[in-house]
């Protein structure tokens, strides 16, 4: 029997991507996608359900669709322009409802995959060069975003303890760059600018966006339990990333950094989040040896991911942004999925 998978955040970047990747898999029978808005990517056979951001209807969906796996991609990992209130609702309350739905007695859910981020480790001068999965963060003060993700992870841990028969996969992804993803750091680099803190040249790890979806797919299909760091090989100095991208650096003073950065952010010149301030000062490295033991191989190294990203940016600058040719139209999608006149042969074409 094939897998029945529920993907959250179908309208967001990662949800759409993961659903696309899973669709290509013949071993997956059913994909149900939850989103607050309509999906922005073309999907062949994923069933879209609209929900609010805290998934209050999730328990009903799980019961009705008998999904065996929930892939939770809808966690905010960049505190960029999102109000703290909303952040809490999406991350903490959303995950709570999701885990509650997955953990009710008689629940058909056998695996939960959660997409977290290495930002939970923070960044401080006391950090080890490489964080292992079990190394605690050294900085006690956490930003709003970090606090919410830490809370999410603690719920996940409780869930794993309470449901020993459910496979719980918690993935901590490092900063992602790629041809399509937009993050505060990639926005800056795509513009050709790079805010940096004078006197600091932190070492960073990057991950290619396709490696993220590939990793989520791998963990889901192979049903691998556990907590894993996912990051590209190598820790590359920020100065080197700036030169790979051929960007102009904007030096910020090492003291009172946020004070100087805030007006520039307000003016829309650059992006600079509280998490970036710590990251661009001390950098962060995560140990990915545990991930490698599972047999999963990343295609890109840190420097390779950055190179790939900037190549995509150059192309876009020349030919203009890719036109989003896809608009979700419910009646059309319903027709293709459910109408009897649509040839089954076409649907099941090898």
């Amino acid at each position: 029997m094939g897998r029945r998978i529920l993907v959250t955040g179908l309208d967001s970047f990662w949800g759409g991507r993961v659903a696309q990747t899973l669709e290509a898999n013949p071993g997956v029978d059913v994909i149900v996608g939850l989103g607050t808005g309509e999906p922005s990517v073309a999907l062949e056979r994923t069933e879209y359900v609209r929900s609010d951001q805290t998934y209050s209807i999730l328990a009903r969906i799980v019961k009705a669709t008998k999904v065996d796996t929930i892939v939770h991609t809808f966690l905010v990992v960049d505190s960029n322009k999102i109000p703290p209130r909303n952040l809490h609702e999406i991350n903490v309350i959303g995950t709570m409802n999701l885990l509650a739905a997955a953990g009710t007695s008689g629940s058909p859910v056998r695996q939960v995959v959660i997409k977290s981020a290495t930002v939970v480790y923070g960044a401080s001068s006391r950090d080890p060069t490489w964080f292992k999965e079990e190394t605690p963060r050294s900085e006690s003060h956490a930003t709003t975003l970090e606090r919410s993700l830490l809370e999410v992870e603690s719920y996940v841990e409780d869930f794993a303890n309470d449901n020993p028969n459910t496979i719980v996969t918690l993935l901590r992804f490092s900063n992602v760059v790629g041809s399509d993803i937009i993050t505060p750091i990639s926005t800056n680099l795509a513009k050709g600018i790079a805010p940096r803190i004078s006197g600091f040249d932190p070492q960073l790890q990057f991950l290619e966006e396709d490696d993220v979806t590939r990793c989520m797919e791998f963990m889901t299909l192979n049903q691998i339990p556990g907590l894993y760091n996912v990051a590209g090989d190598g820790r590359v100095p920020y100065s080197e990333i700036i030169s790979i991208c051929n960007a102009t650096s904007i030096p910020l003073p090492p003291y009172g950094t946020m004070l100087f950065a805030r007006p520039l952010v307000k003016l829309g010149i650059m992006e600079f989040t509280p998490e970036m301030e710590a990251l661009l000062r001390y950098g962060r490295g995560v140990d990915t040896r545990r991930l490698k033991e599972t047999g999963f191989k990343l295609r890109y190294t840190t420097a390779g991911a950055v190179e790939n990203f900037i190549r995509a940016v150059r192309l876009r600058k020349t030919i203009g942004g890719a036109k989003n040719s896809y608009t979700y139209q419910q009646d059309v999608e319903n027709f293709f999925r459910h109408s009897r006149v649509v040839s089954q042969e076409q649907q099941d074409a090898p």
Binding site: R17, Q20, T21, E23, A24, P26, V41, A42, L43, E44, R45, T129, W130, Q203, E209, D210, T213, R214, D233, G234, R235, V236, P237, S239, E240, S243, I244, G285, R299, Y300, T301, A303, G304, E307, N308, A349, P350
Partner: peptide, 29 residues
Amino acid sequence: EKGALVPLPRQFFEPPPEDPRLSDVDEWG
């Protein structure tokens, strides 16, 4: 391919680039 509507990441024909490092800073800095 099933789902050929959507260009899937894995179907990229170009191999991933080599590790294009510019400096010799090692993982420890």
